[in-house]
Write a protein that binds this DNA or RNA. Structure first.
Lengths: 223, 223
DNA sequence: GCGAATTAGTCACCTTTTGTGACTAAAGTC
DNA sequence: GACTTTAGTCACAAAAGGTGACTAATTCGC
């Protein structure tokens, strides 16, 4: 099932598989067989007739035995940076995987994002772009909800958001915005997690559409 | 200078060149030489050692004699849709060009976005993605300002925003947000455009950085 | 058993942002 | 001079967002 690197393949599909591992984000890496001691993103030379996204999903299935709960293309990366596959360009995807159900198959290991081994320049650029892609999609798609089990506490949800956004959020603001969006509904279960007061469990149950009703923003970062 | 279509090329760089033509957005198309009566996006089979973005800029220079004022990669498009170049995948770029200075070379024509000729399915998908890319970048980069001459009236600027966003904006809100962002400064010139009161001319002169200071948003379009 | 510590959940207050109609100003048209 | 047209500004209300402080329910140490 493991495809061999085809040195003549003009492009590869590289996938950044991201999970919330405890208190940190982690991505899946594999030891590059073609290169000495280097770690690399899972990748694949897509077969003809195969959709790019389908190729990305197959990479994930091969590495984890499961498909991601959300996938998005990051873009094409060429720019004369070396790549393990020696392909000219990489079409990069990002995929999110709940950590509970995702157990890497042989040869794949989770690495915390804050402490990655050396990667090829191109793949490092891909990982950085993956972070930006996740963050910019976070308010447009319910990707954080699917990183959690089907029921979860609001504190857990907030922790996932803080992890993905890379910043702390105020509890009251977070819950107020969540309520206004009609995205979750409470179950009648509670979970006592050791110390403090037990938390009510919620499930993702979106109820109403948001009106995309806003004017312009001028949020330029560099003038 | 016109590169010939290489049938063995594994991928092509396709460019959506967008301009504000009077009251409408327009994109540049060329008559596909390999296909009977079809129009197509300008494209190029990139040379080895050439950056993807450099290839896109060269496409623009070849078609317009000028490089775009803003360029961004849209992504890679494969998905078994036919393409004039018969390449397996297209790396798509979007580029913005001021209409005043951009005169197409032979074989290239501006088409209003609302009335495009039939394109290949893949290129139609690329054009739609280009629109989304522009709209999502509009509040993060000063691309609207560079579509205009160096001095412009605030009404002209608002019209460009309305064109790119595809929706009307309220005059007072637009100007209030613009002032808060410290992006323009008035000149001491005025322009009388026929009918009503003359408008003051402004120039793009960004002064201060915005704080990326905001909580979460739950703006999902489909639950 | 009891107070301290810890986590969950909510409220109230205030500031900022945003939508919007109405207003004044300066030009042309008739 | 009255009317039309475009520019530019104001002020009010509503909505969104930041924040500290409060109550509630549990465990831990003693």
């Amino acid at each position: 099932m493991r495809e061999r690197p085809s040195r003549t393949s003009p492009y590869s599909v590289d996938v950044v598989l991201v999970t919330a591992m405890g208190n940190e984000l982690a991505i899946l890496l594999t030891r590059g067989s073609t290169e000495r001691e280097r770690w690399a993103l899972p990748w694949r030379a897509p077969q003809t007739g195969e959709t790019l996204e389908a190729a990305a999903i197959r990479v994930a299935e091969h590495a984890l035995g499961e498909s991601p709960i959300w996938t998005e293309q990051i873009g094409a990366f060429g720019d004369a940076k070396r790549h393990p596959s020696e392909s000219e360009i990489s079409i990069a995807f990002v995929g999110l995987v709940p950590h509970e159900t995702a157990s890497p198959t042989a040869g794949y290991t989770w690495f915390p994002m804050r402490d990655l081994p050396p990667l090829s320049p191109r793949q490092r650029a891909i990982v950085e772009a993956a972070t930006r892609t996740i963050q910019s999609r976070l308010d447009q798609a319910p990707i954080a909800f699917r990183l959690l089990p089907s029921t979860f506490t609001l504190s857990e949800l907030q922790q996932v958001y803080e992890l993905l956004l890379g910043k702390r959020l105020h509890k009251a603001s977070f819950r107020r915005a969540l309520q206004a969006a009609w995205l979750v509904e409470p179950t009648d279960e509670w979970r006592s997690e050791g110390r403090g007061r037990p938390a009510q469990l919620y499930r993702y149950a979106p109820k109403k559409r948001r009106r995309p009703h806003r004017g312009v923003r001028f949020d330029f970062l560099f003038p």
